[in-house]
Amino acid sequence: MALVKAGVVVLDCAEPEMLAVFYKALLEAEQTHASANRVEIRGADGTRLAFRRDMGAAPPSWPRPEDSFQVHLDFVVADLDEAERRVVGLGGRPLDTRDAAGPFEERGYADPAGHSFTLRRVPPTAPKQG
């Protein structure tokens, strides 16, 4: 048995209940925990995310060129256009939706709290460029 196991990815935000609603719908997930300051969900594929209340939360500043992502989420989808419609319908916003050249076919978005994530057709294997 592993000494350390992967836990859950936690996104800090001002309103964890509202952000959990967005990701529950996007990932067709179920809520597994809720308290006054934290909500956890598990997607049908086992992906676990949590949303923690941070009273001083400010949206990430990406895509300013002087800033890096630091952390972002990647989701693999079969149909980019259909997934984009779902994201926008749930309150997400496009950051970079031009079709990327090459085999990855990816598009960037922000969730309602401003955290960046990518929808892509193929999981990445190459290092970040640029």
Rank of each mutant, 00 (worst) to 15 (best):
56 G>A: 14
28 E>V: 04
108 G>C: 04
37 N>E: 07
81 D>H: 09
19 L>S: 00
7 G>R: 09
30 E>R: 10
57 A>D: 02
16 P>A: 11
16 P>F: 08
89 G>V: 06
9 V>I: 14
59 P>Q: 03
51 F>Q: 03
18 M>P: 00
25 A>H: 06
29 A>I: 01
91 G>L: 01
78 A>Y: 03
14 A>W: 06
119 L>K: 02
68 S>Y: 12
118 T>W: 10
8 V>E: 15
53 R>F: 13
106 E>I: 13
57 A>F: 05
111 D>M: 02
104 F>L: 02
64 R>A: 15
71 V>D: 03
45 D>F: 08
22 F>P: 02
100 A>Q: 11
96 D>N: 11
46 G>E: 07
65 P>E: 13
36 A>L: 13
44 A>G: 12
95 L>R: 02
113 A>L: 00
55 M>D: 15
41 I>L: 13
92 G>N: 07
35 S>V: 11
47 T>I: 09
70 Q>R: 10
35 S>L: 03
71 V>C: 10
43 G>C: 10
101 A>Y: 04
114 G>C: 01
68 S>M: 13
32 T>W: 04
117 F>W: 10
65 P>N: 10
51 F>I: 02
50 A>C: 05
67 D>M: 08
44 A>Y: 05
73 L>Y: 13
8 V>T: 13
40 E>T: 06
91 G>R: 02
84 E>C: 05
46 G>T: 10
118 T>S: 07
113 A>I: 04
119 L>M: 01
98 R>S: 13
41 I>R: 12
85 R>I: 00
59 P>M: 05
41 I>N: 02
109 Y>L: 03
64 R>W: 15
89 G>W: 09
70 Q>L: 04
98 R>C: 02
28 E>M: 05
84 E>R: 11
75 F>G: 03
120 R>A: 09
89 G>E: 05
44 A>M: 11
102 G>M: 01
84 E>P: 09
115 H>G: 02
17 E>Y: 13
75 F>I: 12
91 G>H: 07
108 G>F: 15
32 T>L: 07
103 P>Y: 08
52 R>T: 12
38 R>W: 15
94 P>H: 12
94 P>R: 09
111 D>P: 01
36 A>H: 11
59 P>N: 06
72 H>Q: 07
10 V>K: 14
52 R>I: 09
59 P>Y: 10
116 S>T: 09
31 Q>Y: 00
28 E>Q: 08
13 C>A: 05
78 A>K: 14
62 W>R: 12
44 A>D: 09
71 V>S: 15
109 Y>N: 05
73 L>E: 06
44 A>R: 14
33 H>S: 13
75 F>K: 07
13 C>Y: 01
98 R>V: 13
92 G>A: 10
65 P>Y: 12
9 V>A: 14
50 A>P: 12
105 E>Y: 10
13 C>F: 05
104 F>M: 01
34 A>W: 12
39 V>G: 04
72 H>Y: 01
84 E>D: 09
99 D>N: 00
120 R>D: 00
65 P>T: 14
19 L>M: 04
95 L>C: 14
72 H>T: 08
91 G>N: 09
21 V>K: 13
8 V>F: 10
96 D>I: 10
92 G>V: 01
12 D>P: 12
15 E>I: 03
93 R>I: 00
21 V>A: 10
116 S>K: 08
58 A>N: 07
55 M>F: 14
119 L>I: 08
